[in-house]
Every structure is written in C-alpha cells, then in structure tokens.
Design a protein around this nucleic acid. Structure first.
Lengths: 191, 191
DNA sequence: GTCTATAGCAAGATAGAC
DNA sequence: GTCTATCTTGCTATAGAC
C-alpha cells in the first residue's frame, strides 16, 4: 500500500479513502488490467478468423498488458497464493473476473473457423483460461530482458495448443480427448 | 515459526538453536518429506514395470506423504510463491532437491517397459516433475474431505499422461511431440 | 479529499538467564 | 539445550487535523 500510494503521488492514508482495503484495491487493479487486455486484444479478434492466430494475439496482448507491472508481480503473487485470500484466482471473490476472462477465451474460440465437438467446445474456454494462468505464472518468474522467454513460450505453446485441439477430433485421439474432458469436467460429486 | 515450535513442544527461541532461519527449517522440512516420499514409493517402483502404474503409485505416494501437512500448505505456499525466496521451487537454493525429485521420476520412466525416443526420454522426468507440481498446487487448494478430489485428479491425469506418452511415438503425432519438446528444451538462448 | 501521525498486530530473530 | 522476555521490522488500517 505504501509503494502504491507513493507511486500514485498521494499519502498512504489517502489510498484508504478510495479503497476499503488492500484487497479491494488489488481487485480493482485486476479489473483494470483485464479491461486493458480486452482493448489490446480487440484488434486481432476483429480481424483474424484462424484459431491459432486469435489465441496468439490474445496471449501476446495479455503479456503486453501486464508487462508494466512485472516489478510488482512477486508481491501480488504472494497475496494471490494464499488459498484463503479473496485475491486467489480460484476464490469466490475472484469468480466474476475469472468468468469475464474465460468469456474472452470463448470469443477466441467462437470467432474462429475451428470445428469442435460439443463437449470440447464447452470446456475449451475454461481450459484456455487455465493455460493462460500457467503462462502468467511463468512470466512472474521470468527475469529475461523484456521477458523474451515468456513471449517465446507463448508462441510455442500456442502452436502446441492449436495442434492439440485440431488433432483432438481425429478418431484415434477421441478416447484421449474424452479422458481429458473427464479430467476437467468433474461431474456430479464435486468433492 | 511460533506454530511449529508449539507443535514440536519447544519454545520459539529454541527452534533457532537448530535452524538458522525460517528458510532453513522449511528447506529441511522439504528434504524430509521428499525422503518420506521416496520410502512410500519404493514398493511400487520395486514391483511394477508398467509406466502408468509406476507413475500412479509415485503420485499417490506423494499425496499420501504430504497429506498430514495440508493445514500448513497455505502458509508454505505463500512463502514459496515469492520469486525472490530461496523456498521458491525454481530458485537456485531449491535446485538440489528439485534434481532429486526429478531423479525419482527418471526412475519411474527407466524402470518401466516404456519405449521412448531419445529426446522425450531425456525430457520426460523434468516434465513429470512439473506435472507433479501442478498436482500439488491443486492439492493446496483442495478442501474436499480427505482431498478426494486430488486423488481423483491423480488417477485421471496419470491415465491421460500415460496415454499421451504412449501415443507420442505414433507417426502422425511426431511433429506435435517435437513441438512439445522444443517448448521445454529452450536451447541455446536461455534468455 | 488529503495530509500526518500512530494504533495495532503478526512475524522473524536475538539476548541472556538457567 | 532450553527457556522467557524482548527487540525489530514491516505491514494494514484508522484517527483526527486541515
């Protein structure tokens, strides 16, 4: 809070005039970066129809968007890591924003020429959100100049994801696809 | 440190007679649970020759081993999350233990009847270590009774991994396998 | 609305008696 | 070796003047 207040050019106490708590402030920060991500991704999503290119554009836009905050990524992650924290991406408090982010990946899929089975189509946005969290996790630890390694990871992993998804419809891979969907579906007995 | 000292039945100050810092204590804790994991996994590794069963046994042993410490998983993860912390699994300080854990997965592979290409054989232990960290991450957040969901994740994901690895040799999947290996290999230009 | 000052607390670590 | 007592720090959050 001290660092943020200083960066904002206001006194520490003043931050609490606008935000009820540290958690509220950070939640708002996350909302803001998500809106920035939406804006940064709008271009490719309007132009591209190829799934792979759409995903690549969205992932690059993601890294571009959060890059200015790489310095704070460590502290933010420390807060988010606590399973009991509302800032944890899997918490109920994070559910709305998580849903919005997942919706973006749904747009990536829906706006593409990708042909998919019903089940995979339903599950894919959530899977892509998880994938994107993995990339962010990598980015947090990335100390390479300009986070070049993260960008390379994005390029290569998007390629891999696109291949996997495309192949998933092939008959020999159907059982594997079904197994993967069962893994993520978790039907009925939630616990 | 206070909680640990209390659980150990000693005074807070006394903990610092045995451990130079919190980090040293936790590192030792990690070493200890790893040794316990080795012991718990020894049985299956001695008996089974099927890759899938070996991996399943090792993963179940892992969850069994860490289960008593589920209460502390949150705090421990908070420490480990900081990229600057020596407790971070990707830190240099964690490198020796990470290597030992990876070696265990090498044993899983080597002791099995699995036929693999040279490159995948070399990369697989590290990939399995990463996979196992993902399972641990899930376990940290798992609040289901007895962490049933984690055990189910292990069963299903091991099945999936085994299928994937088995299929990786098939000619139509070779390019995908090569792409996956490139993803993880990161040759030459480390950054 | 913004400031300064400070309350309150949790946690890591140390001092020094026994 | 083990204890109690305490130091120090770092942080969230609040009080109250302006």
């Amino acid at each position: 809070m001290r660092a943020i207040a200083e960066a904002a050019g206001v006194a520490l106490g003043n931050a609490y005039y606008y935000f009820g708590s540290k958690e509220h402030l950070i939640q708002e920060f996350y909302r803001r970066t998500h809106r920035e991500h939406l804006a940064a991704a709008a271009g490719v999503l309007a132009e591209e129809v190829e799934f792979k290119e759409r995903l690549l554009g969205v992932m690059r836009a993601k890294v571009d968007t959060i890059m200015p905050y790489h310095r704070f990524a460590g502290v933010l992650f420390k807060s988010a890591a606590d399973p009991a924290s509302p800032l944890n991406p899997f918490s109920v408090e994070s559910a709305p924003l998580r849903a919005e982010a997942t919706a973006l990946f749904a747009v990536v899929v829906e706006g593409s020429r990708l042909r998919l089975g019903r089940e995979l189509r339903a599950a894919l946005p959530g899977l892509l959100w998880t994938y994107h969290m993995g990339v962010v996790l990598f980015w947090i630890h990335d100390v390479s100049p300009g986070c070049r390694r993260t960008y390379r990871l994005v390029e290569r992993s998007v390629d891999l994801v696109a291949r996997l998804v495309a192949l998933s419809r092939l008959p020999p891979l159907r059982p594997l696809t079904r197994a993967a969907l069962r893994l993520v579906d978790d039907p009925a007995g939630e616990d």
